[in-house]
């Protein structure tokens, strides 16, 4: 649990970050809250000879809610999200999910940018972002570009982000209707055995729109379009929910680990999704 030696940089602006990234390529990485990266370095599973701390970089923090547009700077901590009244009003699912991440100590450090950029299938924010249909803003040597959360994740720790790009913000439209973030975990400080993010809009007693994403049940988050479609147009009777659950089960691909065998995880996923749908519907 002793990391290898590394150079530490603490630039004040994005240009400073980019120049180190460009100079050292693969050998450089940015550090946000450090609560995913530092454990990996201590285990010597990640070797990072050049570590660039984003702490002092201008313009990476802050939460803005402008009409129905929400923008969260990459360096915003999970604690900041829990603490922000405007965000809680605009997108209460953000608060509900953040409260289920790790423990208060981790949440004081861990950032949204780190959580979504990390690419660990256990992270809760990526699925949440897919559920919200969020957009990620990336800055690189060629300037700024955006990418949809639903297109960002390729495999475990593999994303659409280039090595010399920084994720600067996530943004999304404030969701309407009911919401729920359900997570089964073994203990406080654990990643999900199964987690579900659900948004449902109700019009005239029927589901008019829905979005469903699952966490830690594949090597990427799973936005299950089919599961959501199974709900749209129904009044969420048992059959509709069963169809949504069945559709979700067709999309996930969990693996065996200490949290349990595949068959258990599939069962847990279906229960968690069912509960999330019921809660979201009750709030719609």
């Amino acid at each position: 649990m002793i990391p290898a030696a590394f150079e530490y940089y603490r630039p004040k602006d994005m240009a400073g970050v980019l120049s180190v990234l460009q100079e050292h390529g693969d050998d450089a990485r940015v550090l946000a809250g450090g609560h995913s990266l530092i454990p990996m370095m201590k285990l010597r599973m990640a070797e990072v000879p050049h570590l660039i701390d984003l702490q002092d970089v201008e313009g990476l923090g802050g939460i803005s809610v402008d009409g129905d547009t929400v923008r969260i700077g990459a360096m915003t901590t999970q604690h900041d999200i829990i603490d922000n009244a405007a965000l809680a009003a605009a997108a209460p699912i953000m608060r509900e999910a953040s409260l289920q991440i790790a423990d208060p100590q981790v949440r004081y450090m861990g950032t949204v940018g780190g959580n979504v950029a990390n690419g660990d299938p256990g992270n809760d924010m990526p699925g949440l972002m897919q559920c919200l249909d969020a957009t990620f803003t990336l800055v690189g040597p060629d300037g700024e570009r955006t990418v949809e959360a639903r297109d960002f994740y390729e495999a475990a720790y593999m994303t659409d982000r280039e090595d010399d790009e920084i994720l600067t913000a996530v943004s999304f439209k404030a969701p309407k209707g009911g919401y729920a973030y359900e997570k089964q975990k073994r203990k406080i400080g654990d990643y999900a055995t199964a987690a579900a993010a659900v948004l449902i809009t109700k019009t005239d007693g029927k589901c008019s729109a829905a979005s469903i994403a699952m966490t830690n049940l594949s090597d990427t988050p799973i936005w299950s379009e089919a599961a959501a479609e199974a709900l749209v147009g129904t009044s969420l009777d048992d059959a509709a929910i069963a169809a949504a659950v069945a559709a979700m089960l067709g999309d996930i691909d969990p693996t065996d680990d200490n949290r349990g065998p595949v068959e258990f995880k599939r069962h847990a996923a279906s229960i968690i999704l069912r509960r999330a749908i019921e809660t979201a519907w009750s709030r719609a």
Partner: peptide, 8 residues
């Protein structure tokens, strides 16, 4: 008696 064993 963790979750998956109870489930099993």
């Amino acid at each position: 008696h963790d979750h998956w064993r109870i489930w099993k």
